[in-house]
Design a binder for these strands. Structure first.
Lengths: 167, 167
DNA sequence: CTTGATGGACAACCAGGTTGTCTACCTAAG
DNA sequence: CTTAGGTAGACAACCTGGTTGTCCATCAAG
């Protein structure tokens, strides 16, 4: 039974998983056992401006409650610090700690290494072509970093029905 | 901040998600609202021989308990039927119902259509090259259909530590 | 000062997984 | 025939990451 459509889908999943799993494993090996890709992802979002639970939730297409939970574990593990916003009594400002920055840095190095390894395996041209093709296919959805549960655990993914959060 | 490694990873994820989400949506539109890709996946496994909870668990790299839960919902929704095995008093045989077969069929059509749409967008050669490159990169992990939670919900992914199930 | 929107917290609940434990049943070895 | 070991399945407790729903404090605008 040949099923080109499913095969392609699974192939993309396998590719993602291979990279993600290896990345997570390497990250663990280098001292960040308590991190999951969601965490790295959330950290990037926070660092690039999503400095409150609500905002983080928006960026990740997740309810603010879910974002708050993520933040709570991030804070527990010292990747992020929470400080009251002097200018707005409702808000609690988020700040990526040095430990968090180190993890982000490490994560970037690791993934870049993994990509280089792939380049060595199939050649720079093939890989570049793959990226180009994929990029033009996914278009807008490309780097929409709103990967809800998509990066949880060692990696998971959920595409919830665009939470409204009537709260 | 250019991060080639992360970008590639996210690109693969985006590709997978695009296909998976569109597929799930289309499946819902055509009458299978209560299905998630895991279900389609499990159905295939069952249909191709994993006709017991334990075996299904093995195929999906998930505990037999988790498999049993999936089976329970599949049975509830009439995609699968459970019948005692006349030859082995311990086993409960699984059988994909007509409704289940119809869903599998529909799913295949949908995903094939999606692939064709992609082919039309970037050309058959590019897409074939992409598949070829990816296939050679993921190698063994390729069609390892053991995508645990990886397909749950509208799609999620988990890579659990190869459950042993001491039960 | 009231009204409405926003930020955050809390509780209840769900899906999908994992352990751990227990029973029933098959099988092979004495 | 009996017993010991392994396998199938069920049940319960628990975890994670998400979702509602609700409520309060605070800001911003009229």
């Amino acid at each position: 039974m040949s099923r080109p459509g499913s095969d392609l889908t699974l192939l993309l999943l396998a590719g993602f998983r291979t990279l993600a799993d290896q990345g997570a494993a390497e990250l663990a090996r280098r001292g960040h056992e308590d991190v999951r890709p969601v965490h790295d992802f959330a950290l990037h979002a926070i660092h690039s401006g999503a400095d409150s639970a609500s905002e983080l939730g928006r960026r990740m297409s997740v309810t603010k409650q879910a974002a708050a939970k993520t933040i709570a574990t991030l804070e527990e593990r010292n990747y992020v610090a929470r400080e009251p916003d002097p200018a707005d009594g409702r808000r609690v400002r988020l700040r990526v700690t040095d430990h968090g920055l180190a993890m982000m840095q490490l994560g970037q190095e690791i993934f870049d290494e993994l990509r280089e390894r792939w380049e060595a395996q199939v050649g720079a041209e093939s890989l570049a072509a793959l990226e180009e093709t994929l990029r033009s296919l996914v278009g807008d959805n490309a780097i929409r970093l709103d990967s809800p549960g998509w990066l949880a655990r060692d990696m998971d993914a959920v595409s919830p029905p665009a939470p409204a959060d009537r709260g």
